[in-house]
Amino acid sequence: MSDGSRGEVISVVQRRRRWTTEQKLALIEETMCPGTSLAGVADRHGVSRSLLFEWRRQAREGTMPGLVPPEAERSPSLVPVHLVDGSPPEATSPAFTHPEQPVRDTAGVEVVLRNSRILRVSEAIRPEVLRRLAAALEA
């Protein structure tokens, strides 16, 4: 006997979402903002928390597909340099000096990245630190 009601099956087929390297890096950058939680960023953008943790690890280790690791960056090229007046950045962080060199008052260097962000550092910054900073900010 039938009571006239019919059952309805609703199924949703979710396909895997493809994230570009730029999108991944934008989400990673968002997780690093002060007061922002990784869980909140993941929930807001519909990405699993574990995947976002994995992307952060890959970016940190330079193993993210599509992300050029610092040691594989293209060879140095000539870029325009403009001298500007202004006080140099503080050179008190250990990242800015070699351990055997005393901290000194140094001139500042301003780097305008391809994405128009400006990176101001001491001329005493270690090249590998500058390379990592520039790569992170250009992403």
Rank of each mutant, 00 (worst) to 15 (best):
V79Q: 10
E54V: 09
T20S: 13
R131W: 01
G35M: 06
T63A: 03
E8Y: 07
L25V: 02
A95E: 11
V111S: 02
H45F: 06
P76D: 02
I118P: 02
E128R: 03
L133C: 02
R6K: 14
G46S: 03
R120P: 05
S87N: 08
P34W: 05
A124T: 00
R117Q: 14
P65V: 09
L27H: 06
V103R: 13
G7Q: 14
S116D: 13
L133M: 09
R60N: 13
E30W: 06
A136K: 11
S11F: 09
S77Y: 07
R57K: 03
D85P: 10
L67T: 01
S11R: 13
R131H: 07
V68F: 00
R16S: 15
L27T: 09
S77V: 09
R18T: 15
E90D: 14
V12Q: 08
R126T: 06
T63Q: 03
I125W: 08
R120I: 10
L25C: 00
R44H: 07
V79P: 08
E90P: 09
P102I: 05
V47Q: 02
P88I: 07
A91D: 11
D43H: 13
R120M: 08
H45T: 05
D85E: 14
R15G: 11
T97R: 15
W55T: 00
D85W: 10
P88K: 04
A72L: 09
R57A: 03
I125A: 06
R17G: 07
N115Q: 06
S48Y: 07
A95R: 11
T106D: 01
E8K: 12
E90T: 14
I10A: 10
W19Q: 11
E128L: 04
Q58W: 03
P102F: 05
R15C: 08
A139T: 07
S37M: 05
G46P: 03
E22Q: 12
S93L: 08
R131Q: 10
L78W: 05
R56E: 11
L137Q: 06
T36E: 12
R104W: 08
H82I: 10
H82D: 10
D43K: 15
V41W: 01
V13E: 13
S93R: 07
T106M: 05
N115G: 00
R117K: 12
I10L: 13
A95S: 12
T106P: 04
L38H: 11
I10V: 15
P65C: 06
S93T: 05
S116R: 13
A135G: 09
G86D: 00
I118C: 04
S75T: 08
M32W: 10
